[in-house]
Measured scan of single mutants.
Amino acid sequence: PQECLLLEPGLNEIMANSLDYNERLWAWESWRSEVGKQLRPLYEEYVVLKNEMARANHYEDYGDYWRGDYEVNGVDGYDYSRGQLIEDVEHTFEEIKPLYEHLHAYVRAKLMNAYPSYISPIGCLPAHLLGDMWGRFWTNLYSLTVPFGQKPNIDVTDAMVDQAWDAQRIFKEAEKFFVSVGLPNMTQGFWENSMLTDPGNVQKAVCHPTAWDLGKGDFRILMCTKVTMDDFLTAHHEMGHIQYDMAYAAQPFLLRNGANEGFHEAVGEIMSLSAATPKHLKSIGLLSPDFQEDNETEINFLLKQALTIVGTLPFTYMLEKWRWMVFKGEIPKDQWMKKWWEMKREIVGVVEPVPHDETYCDPASLFHVSNDYSFIRYYTRTLYQFQFQEALCQAAKHEGPLHKCDISNSTEAGQKLFNMLRLGKSEPWTLALENVVGAKNMNVRPLLNYFEPLFTWLKDQNKNSFVGWSTDWSPYADQSIKVRISLKSALGDKAYEWNDNEMYLFRSSVAY
């Protein structure tokens, strides 16, 4: 590609939709070469300064400071330590791993069909083939991996386009969902002041979706909304933040926050679980009234959910574990990228498509890292959202599997949720969690119950496949010279610098 592309739109479109291996590689590498390399010296300084700040406030390091958001002291029976968070994340991840490994094996087999000769049947997945710029969410792999393609499509993007949905309609439908469970409408100022579409040439905007509580009843969302099912669900997520903000607005200023950061992320995700169900999509006209649910549509639905929800958990866990180790000084600065990709291979089963030396800073190419967000919130929120969903479905008197529950129109479920939201940070999160779900610790069981039918199906699908991955295989081993030459021509001086062995191999191949 010759034109100058922004991340959004532009590069993200390539990473969402392109099936051209080399075009995807160009976009993936260009973003890291342009952005990651510029941020490397800044990120090194950032780590030093943030650690100084944390230690001045009596924390061991900046990662310890972040984990302090979960700490509860002096509340008998509800205490929770920063170290306990690490333990809980690690042991819940071990419980999730078998499901993830089977999802990984299934996706690898489907990617082998889409990119023959580029995928190893026992290796890691190349990082640039996973549906977005970071491989964070695998949602866009659904069209390549759908188990029963002859069934009606449960990705309702086409239906939204056919019905001329726009950003306003998407957010109005999200608002209807919250109102149906007894939560309030958005304010008039929300509709007047939010930026729900890309302003285009009028001004440059950071398009990463964010929710804003500017105080004095001024709530806004910034999002360059596209007419897709993914953005339909994202709208519910962002509006969930606003509902939380509005619910605790009466609290004293210092207590106007989520019980912990994971709670804030979980609220909209609960609504997304219901909004994505075929039952709900039928009720708002995005699935045909004669759409029939059966075992095959159930597996299609659960796989689509797993690509988004299960596929991202190792990504989140590994990223934050790397940062915690960096802040603690356990990874020397001259080994940041080496350790990043070692951990990516070992924990996530994902491999870099071309080698990256220590001039890169791949983590900082992600919005949340370069903008100083702690990231473990996206792991804890996933466990909380299924715990909350299970409890709210019980309040809504849902009968049947958890993945079929739609809590819309249940004011009982809405009241149970609101009673927790309005507390803000005035009560320990362990107590707030217990008030809703009857337990005071994160628990992976509801998530595993939700995906149980899919897990059973995946194990059957993978019975003749290798489950797990070898960390030795690299996608650039066989194609390295071709890849390096093409990237050198595209990126010039910003391309990865060849070492002596690679230059010798190149000259030998040319001479041959």
Rank of each mutant, 00 (worst) to 15 (best):
R136G: 07
R136N: 08
R136P: 01
R136F: 06
R136L: 05
F137G: 06
F137A: 08
F137D: 04
T139D: 03
T139C: 04
T139N: 04
N140A: 06
N140L: 02
N140E: 08
N140H: 04
N153R: 07
N153V: 06
N153D: 09
N153L: 06
N153H: 09
T187R: 14
T187L: 13
T187A: 01
T187N: 12
Q188T: 03
Q188E: 08
Q188F: 09
Q188H: 11
Q188C: 10
Q188A: 05
G189Q: 11
G189K: 15
G189N: 13
G189H: 13
E192K: 11
E192N: 13
E192D: 07
E192R: 10
E192S: 10
E192G: 10
N193R: 15
N193L: 00
N193G: 14
N193C: 14
V206K: 09
V206S: 08
V206A: 10
V206P: 12
V206H: 08
V206T: 10
H208D: 07
H208V: 04
P209G: 08
P209L: 12
P209K: 10
P209Q: 07
P209Y: 11
P209T: 10
P209W: 12
T210D: 08
T210S: 08
T210M: 03
T210P: 13
W212Q: 13
W212K: 12
W212G: 14
W212F: 11
D213T: 12
D213F: 03
D213S: 09
D213N: 06
L214Q: 13
L214E: 13
L214K: 14
L214V: 11
L214T: 14
G215L: 12
G215Y: 01
G215C: 01
G215H: 07
G215I: 13
K216W: 15
K216S: 15
K216D: 15
K216L: 15
G217Q: 15
G217H: 15
G217N: 15
G217K: 15
G217D: 15
G217W: 15
G217Y: 15
D218M: 15
D218W: 14
D218C: 15
D218G: 14
D218Y: 14
F219K: 15
F219E: 14
F219G: 14
F219V: 14
R220Q: 13
R220P: 03
R220I: 02
R220W: 14
M229I: 11
M229P: 11
M229W: 08
M229D: 06
M229K: 11
M229Y: 06
D230E: 08
D230V: 03
D230H: 02
D230L: 04
D230T: 01
D230C: 03
L233D: 11
L233V: 09
L233H: 06
L233E: 07
L233A: 09
L233S: 09
T234Q: 06
T234L: 08
T234M: 06
T234R: 06
H237Q: 08
H237L: 06
H237D: 03
H237R: 07
H237A: 04
H237F: 09
H237K: 04
H237T: 07
H237S: 05
H241I: 09
H241G: 01
D245T: 03
D245W: 13
M246I: 11
M246G: 13
M246Q: 11
M246P: 01
M246C: 10
M246D: 12
A249L: 00
A249V: 11
A249M: 01
A249P: 13
A249K: 14
A249R: 15
A249F: 14
A249I: 01
A249N: 10
A250V: 03
A250S: 05
A250M: 04
A250W: 01
Q251N: 10
Q251P: 11
Q251G: 10
Q251M: 11
P252L: 13
P252M: 11
P252V: 10
P252Q: 10
P252F: 10
P252T: 08
P252R: 13
F253H: 13
F253L: 14
F253C: 13
F253I: 14
R256P: 05
R256F: 04
R256Y: 06
N257G: 08
N257C: 01
N257Q: 05
N257V: 05
N257R: 02
N257T: 07
E261A: 06
E261G: 06
E261H: 05
E261S: 07
E261Q: 03
H264Y: 10
H264F: 07
H264S: 02
H264I: 10
H264A: 06
E265N: 06
E265A: 06
E265Q: 04
E265C: 05
E265I: 08
E265M: 07
E265H: 04
E269A: 02
S272G: 06
S272I: 08
S272E: 05
F301S: 08
F301Q: 09
F301C: 06
F301K: 02
F301I: 09
K304V: 04
K304Q: 03
K304H: 08
K304F: 04
K304I: 05
Q305I: 01
Q305Y: 02
T308K: 05
T308C: 03
T308Q: 01
T308G: 04
T308W: 03
T308A: 08
I309M: 07
I309P: 01
I309W: 03
I309F: 06
I309V: 06
I309A: 03
F367H: 02
F367Y: 09
F367Q: 05
H368Y: 06
H368W: 08
H368V: 06
H368A: 06
D372N: 11
D372E: 09
D372C: 01
D372F: 01
D372M: 02
D372S: 03
Y373G: 06
Y373I: 05
Y373R: 02
Y373C: 09
Y373A: 06
Y373M: 08
S374L: 09
S374T: 09
F375N: 04
F375I: 05
F375K: 04
F375P: 07
F375W: 07
R377N: 07
R377Q: 10
R377W: 08
R377T: 07
R377D: 01
R377G: 06
Y378F: 08
Y378E: 08
Y378P: 02
Y378A: 07
R381T: 06
R381K: 10
R381C: 01
R381H: 06
R381I: 05
R381M: 06
